[in-house]
Design a protein around this nucleic acid. Structure first.
Length: 421
DNA sequence: TCTGGGGTCCTAGGACCC
DNA sequence: TCTGGGGTCCTAGGACCC
């Protein structure tokens, strides 16, 4: 096979950068974005990091620091981030025959057919272009495999001003790999790093040169072996098509503990509504719905009630799915328990056009229900999320999550457009 | 008082069959 | 009453990522 070349493009502190886009006075100022429910920091600008804010740290522990240094705080606004992300991705797609979107703020660009270009120069051009037309700063790593390009990107993150780094050149690669900590390799987490260190492997170079493949297979499974080959320059990690999910989840922590069965049913119904809509968008039906309700992990008497429901026929009908959700809550609910979180999962997805009819059931024709779903999706996409929904979702949402610092939907709602004066 | 959410891949081990 | 081995399929749980 021809030698391959990849670039990974990664948006710098993506959520914070999105928030700053419409608040130019916050440029070069410390900014953080909180997780759902304002629980912890999930995006930290370099300025905030320098002040001691830790990625993933709980919000309530950093309140003093935030006040002291006047750090700007935002609740997460996924509508905004999703919209900015699609702008960045669509521009990036102009620079490569093959773009693989890896996450909301990262994409791999296949440069295999472009190796006659000066790729370093090309990557700098892309960086300037994206920054000019979207206002989002990015970093780019280049390498002959995805893992090596991620490692190159890691080098950029340590020295932001360089913007682009390449591990295509073998001499440079040798130089970088010998000091590259094994735990910083993409795909090697804390547990795997400990296991490797027990075998004397401390750097990416140690890992690459470790001769006994069987031991690696035994301690890190097939996944670890692939990472090792990628460091050796053999491209073998294929990213699955992210367009269509195999599992769809919708889970949330509550703003406050809830005790009542009916409120839990409302929460579960809402999560099902959201997941079912996502599933219909990717033209799938599911055969299994599972749901859980649980206390906080920090509660000394942890309880988690979980169960699943198998439909006789694969479905994407929100109303039918809500019934199943109600049954599960009915089954696993215990009185007097302070519930803090609930969630649902949709499994065993099949494409809508491959629906297997259940020969045993003599169900009435479901066409009218399918049409109802189509109509609901249409209305909600035109007039905004949850314009219409099942009454089972409730109207008061006592359990709704906290979101005290949310910015407007600048780019997706006419009522919230930024004002220029 | 207050600690996120949504994914993927892989394997060991149980259940079941012949 | 005791005693097998091989194969498949499924599931729970671990590990990792952003």
């Amino acid at each position: 096979m021809a030698k391959q070349t990849f670039a990974i493009v990664d948006c710098n502190s993506f959520y914070s950068s999105c928030e700053r886009l419409f608040r130019p006075e916050l440029r070069e100022k410390p900014v953080i974005v909180l997780s759902n429910n304002d629980g912890c920091a999930i995006s930290v600008s370099p300025e905030a990091k320098a002040l001691g804010i830790k990625m993933g740290g709980p919000f309530f522990e950093m309140k003093d620091l935030i006040q002291k240094h006047k750090i700007s705080v935002f609740s997460s606004n996924y509508t905004l981030y999703g919209d900015i992300s699609s702008r960045v991705m669509s521009l990036l797609s102009n620079f490569t025959p093959e773009l693989t979107i890896y996450s909301i703020d990262e994409a791999f660009l296949d440069f295999t057919s472009l190796t006659h270009f000066d790729l370093n120069h090309y990557a700098h051009h892309i960086k300037n272009y994206i920054e000019t037309y979207t206002g989002i700063p990015i970093s780019i790593g280049l390498g002959p495999t995805k893992v090596l390009s991620k490692m190159a990107n890691h080098i950029v993150k340590k020295n932001r001003q360089i913007g682009v780094f390449s591990l295509i050149d073998e001499n440079i690669r040798e130089e970088i790999l010998k000091d590259f900590p094994i735990e910083d390799v993409w795909g090697i987490g804390r547990k795997s790093a400990l296991k490797l260190k027990a075998h004397g492997i401390r750097t990416a170079r140690d890992f690459r040169d470790y001769k006994n493949d069987k031991i690696i297979q035994a301690i890190l499974t097939k996944t670890g072996r692939k990472i090792q080959d990628e460091i050796r320059g053999i491209s073998c990690i294929e990213l699955t098509d992210m367009e269509s999910k195999k599992v769809i989840a919708s889970t949330r922590s509550f703003g406050t503990s809830i005790y009542s069965k009916s409120e839990l049913k409302e929460a579960v119904a809402s999560y099902i509504t959201q997941a079912a809509e996502k599933m219909r968008k990717q033209n799938n039906l599911c055969l299994v719905l599972s749901a859980y309700i649980r206390t906080s992990h920090f509660n000394e008497s942890f309880y988690c009630g979980q169960s699943s429901y198998t439909f006789t026929e694969a479905t994407s009908n929100t109303l039918e799915m809500i019934k199943a959700g109600n049954e599960i809550v009915e089954k696993v609910f215990k009185a007097g328990v302070p519930y803090k979180k609930a969630g649902i999962f949709l499994f065993d997805m099949v494409p809508t056009n491959q629906k297997q009819l259940d020969l045993l059931s003599e169900k009435p024709d479901t066409t009218s229900n399918d049409n109802l779903m189509k109509l609901m999706d249409k209305i909600n996409s035109r007039y905004g999320k949850q314009t219409i929904k099942s009454g089972a979702c409730g109207t008061k949402s006592y359990w709704a999550m906290l979101s005290d610092y949310k910015s407007p939907n600048y780019t997706t709602s006419w009522n919230e457009l930024p004002k220029v004066s």
